[in-house]
Design a protein around this nucleic acid. Sequence first.
DNA 1: CTTTTTGAGCTATGT
DNA 2: GCTCAAAAAG
Length: 790
Amino acid sequence: MSDPAPQPGSITARALAARGGAVAATNVPWLEGLNPEQLRAVETLDGPVLVLAGAGTGKTRVLTTRIAHILGTGRASPGQIMAVTFTNKAAREMKQRIGGMIGSAVEGMPWLGTFHAIGTRILRYHAELAGLKSSFTILDTDDQIRLLKQLIQAENIDEKRWPARQLAAHIDRWKNRGLLPDQVPASDGVFANGRGVELYEAYQERMAVLNAVDFGDLLVKPIKLFTENPDILADYHRRFKFLLVDEYQDTNVAQYLWLRLLAQGTDETKPNICCVGDDDQSIYGWRGAEVDNILRFERDFPGATVIRLERNYRSTSSILATASHLIAHNEDRLGKTLFTDMVAEDSEEKVTVASAWDSAEEARAVCEEIESLQTKSHPLNEMAILVRTSAQMREFEDRFFTLGLNYRVVGGPRFYERQEIRDALAYLRVIAQPEDGMAFERIVNVPKRGLGDTTVRKINALSRDQDMSPLAAARLLSETEEIRPAARTALRKLIEDFDRWRGNLDTLPHTELAEIVLDESGYTKMWQDDTSPQAPGRLDNLKELIRSMEEFENLAGFLEHISLVMDVDSAEQEDAVTLMTLHAAKGLEFDTVFLPGWEEGLFPSQRSLDENGKAGLEEERRLAYVGITRARKRAKLWFSSNRRIHGLWQSSIPSRFLDELPVDHVDVIEQTSSYGGYGARGYGNYGASRFDKPLEMDSAYQTPGWKRAQAARSTGKRPSSGPMTIEGELVARSVSTKASSFALGDRVFHQKFGYGDVSLIEGNKLTIDFDKAGRKKVVESFVTPHNQAG
DNA sequence: CTTTTTGAGCTATGT
DNA sequence: GCTCAAAAAG
């Protein structure tokens, strides 16, 4: 996300004043205190502008001030500015800061948001043109994989050899490049011997039936919409006078196309585009980001003004020198040099590198430092531990827990990803959007209703055959004799329940409805009867969920929010250490930053090296750069000689990045106590050879008495649904309008009942007199015509 | 149909 | 080490 601008009243303000580069009092209050480059970035309103903003150079400040300036000078109204960010956090922060500058006008900035949020907005508005109903659901990764799995199975492709996960990755990659099924180059047909594209197509068709989109669609579909409907695009050209893009280095091809379409316009309606970014902080290449976009800006937008922000307001000179020296090892960069003119204080600390025997020891040592800083009255809020992978978090959490140290995990297992929350949401999704088959499937048998694999399989087969939603298929099935009586009764009951709940959608407040649903479905009871230790916590979470719904006007609004905003707004102001991944840390800053796990294979990640070679290494290095530059006063790097990978202990060697740090600005800490040794200069004598003092086995290895509340495993995202206008009859209609391909008296064959004659046709439900089984009601797709001639 | 057992694979990073 | 999926048992 974006770099917070200097905090007023802190070092920064003083530094600014001392520098003389700052702009003296202007008649425009928001421009005060900007340095000349920042001022230029804010005031150059006409024509394309690229702001290359290094870490801690006041990037967000420039962006927000620019918006304030546009509004303040009356160049545009809030609705005429589109401002795109990558994360919700960034969007939220910008809203806040603009609000702080110019008052409440931010409320009226409907087009400030993430690419995905704005894409959703556009799609809902023109849903029909995209082949959707505006109530469409956004599938999360979990739903996506489940759906793909079904499709793979339906195609009789070996799921072991061609896992759904992998297909999802392919599709994601295609969408990131803005490719629709028919545009995928043949050379990309590696999945399932070239059938990947076929599956991609089937996937899109299936999602259309489910009235759903995935994250990629939120970018791809608006592009398609704009290309196919120039008049609509022209509307947007007329609407937007200014286009602002944060973190431009992170845009992928699809986002680039999206922006380019919007930035075109005619001479009179061409919006002024301003992109802000830092090629050195491009860390999302694996997600399809093209650093090239930023490198190519001047060619894409002729006559562009390029402004460099290199004056850093955040970190000490040691930290800056360390980070700069490291990043200089990258070859592919535009090249910027950060500098500070803050006077180095005597107390300035060098960046430190320390080692530990193993990861538990590392966690212990880091926590010791944290506690020691805490006793010197450093707030925990000003400390962060930044790890490469979330798997590293566990050991720190264990440690925090035993010490009773307050901590918060950012981007860890998120509230909306918890099982009970997802289940509850699935119920609500089905109510709000009956086509949402993925949600329906999730809870058909939760709590257990005797609707097992077989039934679900039948529902799915039918729904795929007939291009109808699973709920519609279930409804149909429950009226026939395809499934066993017990299951049939249960299914009918469930469908009746859903009908009733949906009937209450407009009459009851949505929170109350949610309570009723959880209650009547037996979901609450399921957890009440559960004796596992987590059950009470889950019930609490459900209550919390209901509580969080109160902030929203209706169910649709709530579901929309969580589908895009996976993190629950942590309003907790409690003093706590922050624990998060390096990726999540972008845009944040702390006085003290701990960077554990600087070992070859882990950081840089082996996988990154294997898959992307030099480019991968450079991205890892940028990640290291991002990590170090998060620190204002203290950056403390660690590596440990032994680490458990996939459950096996492996000895590790220090990261090459450690060798790339400038000796003058880095202190290598010789561990006084137990930990693995590490020579004063060379990083050579790491390793298993040296630990002078026996480890304190008791504390380092005591069994973690608790497990992390929720395994961080699920990569799922949250789906949602839209407006509450649900017409229940749509389902029924879509079913009955299809003409039956059978005629009265036709001779047919059924897998289970054998041969028979059609005696009645209702839509696609057939009543058949079977030779052996007697008269049965059956859905059309379960019978095949019997060849009379044969 | 549900529960338990066994076995395989796996780990980045996030909208 | 941990989780999920398929297989086996109840």
